[in-house]
Amino acid sequence: MSAEVLAEASDQLVVGAVLLYLAAMIGFALELAYGRARTDAPAKGRVKQPVTVGAPQDEAPGQVAVPADPEPPAWAGTAGKVGMALAWVGWAANASAIVTRGLAVERWPWGNMYEFVVAICLAAVTAFLATQLRTNVRFLGPFVMVVAVLGLGAAVKFLYTAAGPVVPALNSYWIAIHVSAAILASGLFIVAGAAGVLYLIRGDGLSRLPTRSDLERVAHRAIVVAFPIWTFAVIAGALWADKAWGRYWGWDPKEVWSFITWVAYAAYLHARVTAGWRGRAATIVQLVAFACLMFNLVGVNIFLGGMHSYADVGN
């Protein structure tokens, strides 16, 4: 296939992914809206620890799904399953869009904002689907899909860049290492962010939204996995900067905000481990960190520029 055909196919696949994610979102949402309501069991029966060094324990008092008054219709569960299937097909479309783009331009397909955002959406959906393989987190479905639809939609509408080569500074194997790690970590942070927002929206009592302890657990797990990856991404970035710009750290706006994001997530981990913050307080710290991440992705590229603005080298 020629490069033009591949590029064209990639554009179509992105649009296809948006529609599929949208359909998946509706399926998940129906299940959530008509399925069982859940409640957080009151945190009781904490086990007294025989050893009390360091962190408070986290043997979570299990949460129970309390059946809502009317038995939920059977089709609610089916809607959720259909949603899941659609999400997988959407994921395949999203992934193929990236692969065809890569083949069309003959380089790693994340050299500009458009490609980067498309890849981050894939990473977020991947994080969600991969978690789903091990534990049931379908309750997060509608929200991850909303993020993916908005992300891809914004990419197509505002950031679209036709397939083409990148500037010489980006022509390096480091893009595979540094940017891939950043994309992966961002995808996980997005899942954690979605869980965090839901946590704040949801009250304590009976609700059709997932339970708070579920949400908190998912967010924490995602961040625990993402944090080392983000650390690695920042370091790989420094190594690349050392090769391309002659210094490994120059307080370029992107570097500054990556660092701030890193510190903020470290603060979240610290807040839980050493200060024993749980629930609302920890979630707010997490969301502050998430805001830093988003600002780094959107704000820095649009408002601040710097060497990372994918402009000419050395300008």
């Binding site: 620890q49 060094v53 324990q57 481990v273």
Partner: peptide, 10 residues
């Protein structure tokens, strides 16, 4: 058995 580590109950 018990684990002292955050978030690893499951």
């Amino acid at each position: 058995g018990l684990t002292r580590t955050e978030g690893s109950a499951a």
